[in-house]
C-alpha cells in the first residue's frame, strides 16, 4: 500500500496521491466498513422501541441468529433454513449455467471473432443492459408468461398444446437470474482467455489434441483465475439479488433476500434483518472460499 502510494506520488505528484489515497480510504470506510460494522453490531441487539434503547433491556444477544435456526418454538426453523438452502442451490446452479454459456462466448470473442463481428458481439452483449433491471425482469415475465411469446411459439409449432407455467416452475426466474449478471461472467473470462498466446492453442492442435483436449488441458487451466473471478461475482450477486426473484419468482418460492427485506421493511425488525443479511453474506463467502480451495484457485488469481 505504501509502495503504491509512493508510486502514484512519484508519477502524478503528491497532491494527486493524497487526493486518491484519502478518497479511496473515505470511500472504503464510509460506504463499506462503517455500514457493515453497524449491521454486525445491530444484529446482536434486541429490537426495542426507541424509548427502551440505551435502557437496561438493551443488551447483547444471539437471539436473532437463534431465531434463524430454531424459530420461535423448539424445532428447527425449517422454512427459513430451506429458503437459504434453496437460494444458495439456485445461485450455484445459475453460476454453473453462466459458466457454460459465457466460456464459449468469451473464447470466441478472444480467439476467433475478428474486427467487425467481435465489435458486434460486444455490442449485442452490452446494449440490452442499458434497459434497467426491473424492466428487463418484466420483459422476461412477458416472454415466459402463459400467453407469452415462448408459449405462443411453442404451441404454434405444436411442441406442447397447453400453456406451460414457466413462472410457477421457476424457469423464468432461473433464466432471468442467469441473464442478469452474464457480463460479469463474460468479461473476466474474456480477459483471462485473451491473454493466452494463440500459438499455444495451435501448438496443441498441431500435436494432435482434439478441441476438447485443447480446452481441458490448455485453455481452461490458463483461464482458471478469470473463471473463478466471474463465478464468484455471479454467485454472490445472484444470491443477493432482489428484483429478479421478486418479479420472476413463483408464488410459492421465496428468495433469501426477500426474507431480509421483509424483516427490515414489513416487520420493521432491523436487528433481525441485519442478522439475516449477515448470515447470507457469511454463508456465501464460506462457499466461495471452499470452492477456491476445491478448485485450487489461489486468492490472488481472482483479482486478475
Amino acid at each position: 500500500m505504501g509502495k503504491l502510494f509512493a508510486g502514484v506520488a512519484h508519477r502524478h505528484g503528491l497532491g494527486v496521491a493524497i487526493f486518491i489515497g484519502s478518497a479511496m480510504t473515505l470511500w472504503l470506510f464510509v460506504l463499506v466498513v462503517l455500514p457493515q460494522i453497524a449491521m454486525v453490531t445491530q444484529s446482536f441487539r434486541f429490537n426495542l422501541p426507541p424509548a427502551e434503547q440505551g435502557g437496561p433491556a438493551d443488551v447483547w444477544t444471539l437471539s436473532n441468529y437463534a431465531y434463524f435456526i430454531f424459530g420461535n418454538g423448539d424445532g428447527l426453523n425449517s422454512v427459513d433454513l430451506w429458503v437459504l438452502a434453496r437460494t444458495i442451490g439456485v445461485a450455484l446452479f445459475v453460476t454453473i449455467i453462466d459458466l457454460c454459456i459465457c466460456y464459449p462466448i468469451a473464447f470466441i470473442l478472444a480467439h476467433s471473432a475478428k474486427g467487425m463481428s467481435a465489435r458486434l458481439i460486444v455490442l449485442g452483449l452490452i446494449v440490452p443492459f442499458w434497459v434497467n433491471e426491473i424492466l428487463r425482469a418484466f420483459a422476461f415475465r412477458i416472454l415466459f408468461g402463459t400467453t407469452g411469446m415462448i408459449n405462443e411459439t411453442g404451441m404454434a409449432l405444436g411442441l406442447w398444446d397447453v400453456p406451460f407455467d414457466f413462472i410457477r416452475a421457476n424457469v423464468a426466474l432461473y433464466a432471468g437470474l442467469a441473464y442478469a449478471y452474464i457480463l460479469l461472467m463474460i468479461f473476466p473470462i474474456y480477459n483471462a482467455v485473451e491473454a493466452l498466446d494463440h500459438n499455444q492453442i495451435e501448438a496443441a492442435r498441431d500435436m494432435g489434441a482434439s478441441w476438447l483436449q485443447v480446452h481441458r488441458r490448455v485453455v481452461l487451466p490458463f483461464a482458471k483465475g478469470g473463471l473463478a473471478s466471474g463465478a464468484t461475482m455471479v454467485f454472490m450477486l445472484t444470491a443477493g439479488a432482489l428484483a429478479a426473484p421478486q418479479i420472476l419468482g413463483g408464488p410459492s418460492s421465496l428468495w433469501f433476500t426477500q426474507l431480509v427485506y421483509q424483516w427490515f421493511n414489513d416487520a420493521l425488525n432491523w436487528p433481525r434483518g441485519s442478522a439475516y443479511a449477515i448470515i447470507l453474506l457469511v454463508v456465501c463467502m464460506a462457499l466461495v472460499l471452499l470452492g477456491m480451495r476445491v478448485f485450487k484457485v489461489p486468492f490472488g488469481a481472482i483479482g486478475k
Binding site: 498466446d197 500459438n199 499455444q200 495451435e202 501448438a203 498441431d206 500435436m207 494432435g208 488441458r217
Partner: peptide, 26 residues
C-alpha cells in the same frame, strides 16, 4: 508434421516432462 513455433508456445502451466509428453497424452 510437427511445428515448432517462433515463440516456442510451450505450456507455462505444465512441467517440462508434461510439455514433452503432451502429444502422447492426447
Amino acid at each position: 508434421t510437427a511445428l515448432i513455433f517462433q515463440n516456442l508456445a510451450l505450456f507455462p502451466l505444465m512441467s517440462v516432462a508434461d510439455n514433452i509428453a503432451f502429444p502422447l497424452e492426447v
